[in-house]
């Protein structure tokens, strides 16, 4: 079976005035159907750059990056991206409903469009806020709007760039569980970037650790924790704690 993503020996460097800046080197991994792959690494390890390559927003400077067997040469049809900075990712002058419609209003019209928007908003529990403006909502709700906009595309892959990093701990925990629920309902593949080790383990079927400058995949961990995951009991499992410890060491953190 053709993997969803297949990256081989990918590298990325920028030409700057003071010489080249190398961000990524020898990155190789695959994303197979049905899994949540989380990337974890300290800040400055090129996590966002890697996601941008997968999203078709940045072109790698070396190696090959394939999506469903074909080289990535731009944003793909059924790949949706959720960015960390929700306030700039949402169009603040459009209502919640019209933000969610942004990616699909070209192809869908009338009740079909309205139904798809409402379905997406129901998945994130915001169906009552369809006529609000994003700036009237809390940060967690705005991030839900962005997730709904991605889901409205009915994507086969969700690429998420530290989507919960700017949210408080309680909102973060409830959105993590919502995300796992959404994955079960929609079957979307998820590539999730975070600098939060516990989040990476909690959400992931596999965790890839990025390390170094330029960075590369230091280690891949299989997360064989029982499902459905639970914010309290999962996080208390000895396996969870052991993985947390190993990933912490792989990232190169000091405690």
């Amino acid at each position: 079976m053709v993997p969803i993503f297949e990256l081989e020996d990918v590298s990325l460097s920028y030409e700057l005035a003071g010489g080249a800046r190398n961000v990524l080197r020898n990155i190789s991994f695959t994303v197979s159907d049905g899994e949540i792959l989380t990337f974890c690494g300290a800040s400055g390890t090129g996590k966002t750059s890697l996601l941008r390559i997968m999203a078709g927003l940045t072109r790698q400077t070396g190696g090959t990056a394939n999506f469903r067997g074909a080289p990535i040469d731009g944003p793909a049809n059924d790949v949706a991206i959720v960015f960390q900075d929700y306030s700039n990712a949402l169009l603040q002058w459009r209502t919640v409903g019209r933000n969610v419609a942004l990616g699909i209003e070209r192809t869908l019209k009338g009740t079909e469009l309205k139904d798809r928007v409402m379905d997406a908003l129901r998945l994130v529990g915001l169906e009552k806020n369809v006529n609000d403006y994003p700036w009237q909502l809390s940060g967690g709700m705005q991030q839900r709007v962005q997730i709904a906009r991605a889901l409205a595309l009915k994507p086969s892959v969700l690429l998420m760039d530290e989507p919960f990093a700017a949210l408080d701990a309680m909102t973060k925990a409830s959105l993590q569980d919502e995300l796992l629920n959404i994955r079960d309902k929609t079957g979307a593949n998820i590539v999730f970037i975070t600098h939060d080790i516990e989040e990476a383990v909690y959400l992931g079927d596999r965790v890839a650790v990025l390390r170094g400058t330029p960075s590369t995949v230091e280690q891949l961990f299989d997360i064989a924790l029982p499902k459905p995951r639970n914010q309290i009991t999962t996080r208390e499992l000895p396996e969870f704690l052991a993985l947390r410890h190993q990933i912490h060491d792989a990232i190169g953190g000091h405690s």
């Binding site: 999203a55 731009g74 790949v79 991206i81 900075d85 990616g103």
Partner: peptide, 21 residues
């Protein structure tokens, strides 16, 4: 913000859609 243009690109908006929307 540059990110807003990234959103437009990732939603595969045309040049004209990016301008008007």
């Amino acid at each position: 913000h540059n990110l807003t243009f990234d959103v437009a690109r990732s939603l595969r908006m045309t040049w004209f859609e990016t301008l008007s929307k």
